[in-house]
Structure formats: C-alpha cells, structure tokens
Design a binder for these strands. Structure first.
Length: 619
RNA sequence: GCGCCCUUAGCUCAGUUGGAUAGAGCAACAGCCUUCUAAGCUGUGGGUCGGUGGUUCGAAUCCACCAGGGCGCGCCA
C-alpha cells in the first residue's frame, strides 16, 4: 500500500554504479557494496531476474562480531539457483573476499554473507564528507518526481496554538527530507477562509468593534443576536475591533451602538479579520522557522468558480448523484432523518461510503472545496500529494484519496501523514489549555520560553503517529536525557576542539578543505571505527526516512551519532594519548580533527533537515 | 455497530519496510572528575514484543481472530 516504486533497490541507474567512479555516483558505502554483491551474484547466477536482484539488500550488522555489513543475497537467490542458501553463500564469499574494500567475507547463519570492510574504505569516506559538506546524505531517488507537501493549514480564526505546532514541524522537516532525497518539493499552506467558521469569526470581531465604539450591549445580549451564538471570545480580537473602529468610526453599526444588518459590515469585517489573523500566523510560522512557498485560499477558490468547475468535472464523469445515505450503525443519531444529498461516488475508489458535496443552503461542503483544491494541485503537475493532518482527520483520508484517484485517473498519488496529539507537561503535570496568563495557549508563548530549535527537535523525537508528551522542563534540561541538548552538545564540543586546535596548528589547516587532505592512516581505534561506521550509515538513513515519510528517524540517527562521538571524546578522559589534540604528533592530530570535522558536517546535514540551527558553543 | 491508528524492559520510546542472540534513555546497582567542556563516561541486572493461531528458510514486523487504549463515522473544518 505504501510502496513507492523508487526504492533504490529497483532504481534502474544503480546497476551501472559499480562501473563508475564512486564519487560521481553515490556516497553511500552500502549502495556501493550492494553493487559488488550483485556482480558476484550474477557471476554465480547468470540469468538473475531483476525482481530477485531488487530484493538483495546490504545492511549494517546488528552485532559488530558479524562484521560491518551483511547481505541476504544467497537466501534471496537460493530458490532460483536451485542451491541451498549456505552453498550459494559460500560461493559468494569466494568472490566477495577478493572485492575492493572488503577485508573479509564469511558465510553465516541461514545463508547470510557477512562483510568486514577494509578500514581504508571508511577512512576514504571522511574526505568525501568534508568536500561534500551538508549535502552529504543527499540522494537521487526522488529525481524527477514532483511532490507537494501541505501542512499546518490552520483556520485563520486565531493565533496558532500547540495543536498546530507538531504538524508544522513534521511537515516542514518532511519536505526538507524529501528535497534531500532529490524530490522536487513544494511546501504549501491551505487557508480555510471560507465557510461557517470564518463567518463566526467575523461576528466575534464585530463584537470587539462594538465594544470599541462603546456599545451598551452585554456580551450575552450580543451573543443572543448571533446565529449560532458568539464563538471566538478570546482577547486577541480586541485589536481588530479597535482598528475597525479607528478606520470606520460608527459607520459599520449604522451610526448606532447596536447591531446593524450584517450585510452592511460582514464582508468587510471578515476580510480585515482574516487578513490580520493570517499576518499573525505568518509571524508565528516565521518564528518557528517554517516558510511555505505557496498559500492557497479556499475563499479564492470558491470565488473564482474553480470549486464548482471541479464538481462539474466529476459530474461529467458520472461520479456525482443525488442520493440518500444510510445512517451510521450503532451511533444512535438523535436527529437522523433520511434526506437527499449531492454525493460523490467515492466508494468507486475505495472509500466506505459516498460523501456529500453540498450543504442544504446550496454552498459547498468543506470536502467539496478541498477536492477542488487537490484538483488544482494535480493540475499543477505534482506526482505525489502529501497532506500532513491531525489524527482527528484520519477518517478523511480515504475520501480524499478516492477524490485524487478519480480526478487524476490514478496518475497522482495521495498520501496522508497523521500527527497524534501532543500533551504539554511541566514537571510531569499536564499544562491546561487556559486563557489565563501563565499557561500555554499560543505557539508564540511556547517559542518564547523554549526556543525554536528545542521545539522543532523535540517534536521530531517521536513517530508522528504516536502520541507524545512535551515536557517543558525536560526540553531545556542539559542532560543526556534530552536529545536536543545531547546532539547540540556534540556539535559544540567538536567546534570547541577545532578552536583549541588553532593554538597548536596553523589556523589555515582547520578548514574542511585542508582536513580533507589529511593522512588518515592512524585512525584505527575501535571507537574511531565505530564513529566512521555511523557516518557511513547517514545516506541510507536519510533515504530510508524519506521513503517512509518519517522525519523522526533523523533525530534518532543524530542521537546515536552524538553518542558515538561523546564515547570517543571520553576515551581521552581515561588516556591522554587518545585525545584529539596531540601537541607533538601533527599527523595524528590532523587525522582525528578530520574525523570529528566530518562528524560535525554530518550533524549539520541532519539538523538542516530538521530545521534546527547547530550551536558553536555551550557555556 | 463499522473503519483507521496504537499495545515492545518498572517508566518514556527506537527497531534500518521479513533477517542472525529485540536496542537506547530514565529509574536501580557498582565504579569513574587536576584534563580537548564530568552538562559526562564505563559496567551489571531487567523481555512470553498484549493473546492465540497461520503464512516461510526466517515474524516484533505480513494475515485472521480475540483483549485493552486512542481517533473518526450525513451539510464542523
């Protein structure tokens, strides 16, 4: 279901990689080794079908005793070769033992081939990383595929709050991640500025306007006059009311102090209020480091006639009818009565029931307009549409997928990333969402206390689909328990060492370009090799995260990388000869500096995806 | 009632898309600070991967059923 045809195992260009210079093709040691394995396998099994070759994997070993990498090639091809896996594995070992970069190959277990790499292969990665910079980990798996990532899309009915935050961070990081994997990505925000909610917003703003011009009405008296009652009672609309009063005086109230006919003011008030709210949302997003390229307005979509046009288009395809839905079983709806509705045949495309497109007043449902919006995205030529939604929209996914399928003839793929709820905690106690000062309602307040980087990193320390607790005390803790700190601290430590190095080595030797030319032969310690192994895993980690649409994997990788680095750093605590800086041994010092500089580059590469700024020092 | 998501160490969570003896942090226990940042490090103990069946060389991962939790289920967005 979630398969996407561009996993690198099946990538048509990859089969030629082994004949090309590795630097021009991929920086992924695992992908390089996979080519060696395929060459060996094809020698043993000459007519190897592509479907079988595609299943061949080269993965990191879980246990270092098994070497650096393992391949399942023998097990995958055993049936076709009509040989037991263990025998085929033995054959592979004979070839792979002679392959470049391989120090040792061994058959193991049910037919694995374990590979121990020549440490030189890992050392060779360091100059590659230093020369590639933050682009290390980029790949081409998404080349030529256009993706639209829509996220946040909060109603412009008030300031952004915590609930919007996770989607904003996940969507933004996912878009960055896909771009790193070579996809052509557009970041987008859909403004839900049509419908009942913005009308209710206009009424609420109008109440603040009446207050500004000195109305004698009480809030309850006013609320009784509002269709559906007064809804958005937050104080954030007071400035809007004041601004309306300053600009229009009493004219929006017909020079009275009571409620004038809505026709007199509602369009004006609605427009002004939405514009004000969107400006505030832009400020909040900027503060969070989110910068979307396209903002699409539902209101504009309706006004332009595009929404109706899309419905007509579906109608022309025979996908719309007037019908009566069955009541949902077991839900016991009090006021259920069968009535005819304008329905979209989403069941033809995998949905459970057909979905209504028009309200009884003749206006479009939210779904109808959203279909049209997605039609617009399809028309703009995207291959994949990804909506980042709150988990409460889970029931919405099937119908939207059906609509995209219907509108694109199956050519455009629709995906949804659902974000579960975030519980804000302080010291283990839930923080109530209250209007009173002191507890958090708005995103802006959260950012003021915790900061953009801690918010973004922490939001990515859980799978989006799992509920999370966001403890305000823990995200600021300077302990290993706090991954934000632990990763930032690793980077700061590396920068600190490089600054200290300038005192025993010429400063011009400290650049990544010069370090890339260092003699690395002295890098042999287990902890050094462990760190290099981790660095080598970055490309496949980034690629896997992109294909799975799971940006949280980046946070976990960085945590592990930081852990490897801190471990190495601490060797120098026990034994001074293992410190990075060795006064009288410039060759070894430069080699170690190159290693940790490459580590810093990789950390920055990962933080860039997460939208987190690396720190130079922590004091 | 139906659909989707979830259930992994005492706690919070990973688990590289089906791979070998399931990992990390916290908590517990035992050690380690004249130092490139101890804001940390090393070691030990801790598991019926909710349960039961199935698929195959191989299952925490895929399928079926069951138990528990969350979300949703005709003109809210």
């Amino acid at each position: 279901m979630r398969q996407y045809p561009l996993s690198y195992g099946r990538h048509p260009h990859m089969t030629q990689a082994a004949t090309n210079n590795r630097d021009t093709m991929t920086h992924d040691l695992f992908a390089q080794m996979r080519e060696q394995v395929l060459i060996a396998l094809r020698t043993l099994v000459p007519d190897l079908p592509d479907e079988v070759a595609a299943r061949v994997e080269v993965t990191p070993t879980r246990d270092p005793a098994h070497g650096d990498m393992a391949t399942n090639a023998a097990m995958v091809a055993a049936k076709l070769a009509r040989q037991p896996p263990a025998k085929l594995a033995t054959g592979l070992v004979a070839y792979l033992g002679e392959a470049p970069d391989v120090a040792e190959a061994a058959a193991a277990g049910p037919g694995f081939v374990n590979l121990r790499l020549d440490p030189a292969a890992y050392r060779a990665l360091i100059p590659t990383i230093l020369r590639t910079g933050e682009h290390y980990g980029d790949s081409t798996i998404g080349t030529g595929v256009r993706v639209n990532v829509e996220y946040v899309s909060a109603n412009p009915t008030g300031p952004m709050h915590i609930g919007h935050c996770r989607g904003a961070v996940v969507g933004d990081a996912l878009a960055n991640l896909l771009a790193k994997a070579g996809f052509e990505v557009t970041k987008e925000y859909y403004i839900n500025d049509a419908g009942n909610q913005v009308t209710a917003l206009a009424w609420a703003a109008y109440w603040r306007y009446l207050q500004a011009i000195g109305t004698p009405l009480t809030e309850e008296e006013f609320s009784n006059e509002v269709p559906g009652g007064l809804q958005y009672r937050g104080e954030y609309l007071i400035p809007v009311g004041n601004a309306l009063a300053a600009e229009h005086g009493r004219s929006l109230a017909n020079d009275d102090l009571g409620i004038a006919a809505p026709d007199l003011w509602i369009d004006r008030v609605r427009n002004v209020t939405i514009d004000t709210m969107m400006r505030e949302i832009h400020v909040d997003l900027a503060q969070l480091g989110v910068q979307q390229q396209v903002f699409s307005s539902e209101r504009a979509l309706v006004a332009s006639g595009a929404a109706d046009a899309t419905i007509d288009r579906l109608a022309a395809d025979g996908l719309i009818y007037e019908g009566v839905l069955e009541p949902p079983k077991g839900k016991a709806p009090d006021d259920w009565e069968p009535r005819p509705q304008t329905l979209f045949r989403s069941t033809q495309f995998g949905d459970d029931v057909d979905r209504p497109l028009r309200k009884s007043d003749g206006s479009n449902t939210y779904f109808a307009n959203d279909i049209s919006y997605h039609a617009d995205k399809i028309d703009r030529g995207f291959d994949i549409l990804i909506d980042v939604l709150g988990a409460d929209h889970g029931g919405y996914v099937a119908r939207m997928r059906a609509a995209v399928k219907a509108l694109s003839g199956g050519r455009t793929k629709f995906e949804a990333v659902l974000c579960q709820i975030v519980h804000i905690m302080r010291g283990g106690v839930p923080v109530r969402m209250s209007k009173r000062a002191g507890s958090y309602v708005t995103l802006s307040d959260l950012l003021d206390e915790v900061g953009k980087d801690a918010v973004r990193f922490t939001m990515l320390t859980r799978n989006a689909d799992a509920q999370m607790e966001f403890d305000l005390d823990k995200v600021l803790a300077t302990t290993r328990e706090n991954p934000v700190f632990y990763v930032q601290y690793a980077h700061a430590r590396i920068r600190s060492v490089l600054r200290a190095a300038a005192e025993i080595l010429p400063p011009e030797a400290m650049t990544d370009a010069v370090l890339a030319g260092a003699d690395l032969g002295s890098l042999q310690a287990d902890a050094e090799l462990a760190l290099m192994r981790r660095l080598a895993a970055w490309p496949r980690t980034a690629e896997g995260a992109a294909l799975a649409r799971e940006p949280h994997r980046i946070a976990f990788f960085l945590y592990d990388l930081a852990s490897d680095f801190h471990m190495l750093w601490n060797r120098g605590k026990d034994d001074a000869a293992l410190r990075f800086l060795q006064k009288d041994r410039p060759v070894e010092t430069l080699a170690r500096l190159a290693l940790i500089a490459a580590t810093a580059v990789t950390i920055r590469s990962g933080l860039a995806v997460m939208g987190v700024t690396p720190v130079e020092e922590m004091r």
